[in-house]
């Protein structure tokens, strides 16, 4: 059985959250660009050094690109989460509004 807790206030300023989501989107794009730079550097390293040395150094730079891409994807995912949250709050607000107008019996389910 769960313990009852005090009802927590929920506050959403769509504009503010959307701005933060936009910043996360920019951050994701920047790191994605850097991942591309790492991939280009990997190719250059492989070309610059003949044989195993080039392959080894290029592989390290390729891994750099992979790590940067993972961070970029996570930033983009967080941006999507924030954007989705705003949309969900607004949709829920609209849904509640539809059920609480004059002559309505209750909140639609």
């Amino acid at each position: 059985m769960s313990t009852p807790t005090a009802v927590e206030a929920v506050l959403v300023h769509p504009e503010g959250v959307t701005a933060l989501a936009a910043e996360l989107t920019v951050l994701a794009a920047e790191l994605s660009d850097d991942a591309d730079r790492c991939r280009a550097a990997a190719g250059a390293l492989t070309s610059a050094l003949d044989g195993d040395d080039g392959w080894t150094a290029g592989a390290a730079a390729t891994a750099w690109a992979g790590l940067e891409e993972l961070l970029a994807e996570q930033a983009a995912a967080l941006a999507g989460t924030l954007t989705g949250a705003v949309q969900s709050y607004l949709a829920e607000d609209a849904r509640i509004a539809r059920g609480t107008g004059p002559g309505r019996s209750g909140v639609p389910r």
């Binding site: 927590e8 206030a9 929920v10 506050l11 959403v12 300023h13 504009e15 503010g16 959250v17 701005a19 933060l20 949250a85």
Partner: peptide
């Protein structure tokens, strides 16, 4: 919490 507060 100025733009968004609560559990989420």
């Amino acid at each position: 919490g100025e733009s968004w507060s609560g559990q989420a």
